[in-house]
Simulated assay, not measured.
Amino acid sequence: MSAVAKSWVWLVFGFMYLPIAIILLFSLNASDVMAFPLQGFTLDWYAEILRDGRLGGGFLTTLKTAFPVAILATLFGALAALSLTVYPMRFRGGMVVILLLPFLVPKLILAVSQLILLKELGLGRGLWTVILAQAVIVLPFCTIIIASVLIRIDLRLIEAAEDLGASRWECFRRVTLPLMRNGLMASWVIAFVLSSAEYVLTAFLSGRAQPLSVLVASDFRFNLSPGLNALAVLIVLGNIALVVLAETIRRRSGRPR
């Protein structure tokens, strides 16, 4: 790799991670004024966040939303990916266009349109409306992740299983599913992270059940507390722990026994 390429890579990494490092520094600053120079070292902001029952309730609401979203998006993403890569299907091009529409339509328009639809159907805003709306916008990511794994599968393995007398379900359970396991795990993790960070749709459709993203955005508007820096660091650490856990499970499950 040339020196120019290395410099560009480090510049990109710096642009991505330097703001997180600055937030980490301010979360440990003894002063409530977020400015340099730092006034000392303290963990009081972390203790303040952990004692905040309102944010704790928002965190539980986020978990109640992110887990079902990750499951639904991964399930339907797997079905869509199988239809696009493994099993024959008519009008694949049309299906790809439909799946990619959430990429092309701004989230604000999606949120307003879904809010109008819910009103016409007589449904109130709540946790389930947020789950369904988030699953729609996360679905394309899950489909692409799983399809990227399935597209590398040698279809002759499935044909060999069928020639040996396996049914369609047995071929899927014994051949296809083990080969797409890593894609399913990666899809679930990405869906969980995207759901926990989603704000626009959540703000429009959450109603009284407000996840953590809505609460934090509200606090940033009216009270720029250093405790929010500590909360941001905890969220980043939680996401890192989730990725590490998923990778550990993947490696252990892939070891020969």
Rank of each mutant, 00 (worst) to 15 (best):
E170W: 08
L24F: 14
P68H: 04
I116D: 11
L28I: 03
L79T: 04
N182H: 03
G126T: 02
C142S: 14
L228G: 00
L18E: 06
I22N: 13
R51H: 13
V105F: 12
R221W: 08
S7C: 10
I71T: 13
M185W: 02
L245P: 01
S167T: 14
R257E: 15
I240M: 13
L155G: 07
G183Q: 01
F36D: 08
D52F: 05
A186F: 02
P211A: 04
A161T: 03
P88Y: 00
P211L: 02
S225Q: 13
P102W: 10
F15Q: 10
V236S: 13
L28Q: 04
P68E: 12
W45Q: 07
L205R: 11
I23Y: 02
I151G: 01
K119I: 01
A30E: 15
E198D: 04
I249M: 06
I249R: 08
I190R: 00
E48W: 01
L72F: 09
A135R: 07
A135W: 01
L100P: 03
I146K: 02
E198N: 08
S213P: 04
I240H: 09
P256R: 05
L234P: 02
S113R: 06
L150I: 00
A147R: 00
F36E: 06
F172G: 03
G124R: 14
V130R: 05
P37V: 04
I145N: 00
P226R: 05
I235L: 15
L101A: 13
T42R: 02
G122C: 14
G53I: 09
L104N: 09
L28F: 14
Y87M: 10
L212C: 04
I137G: 06
V69A: 05
S218E: 12
R174Y: 06
M89Q: 11
L28E: 10
P106N: 14
G238F: 10
F204T: 04
P178I: 12
K107A: 15
G207E: 02
L157R: 01
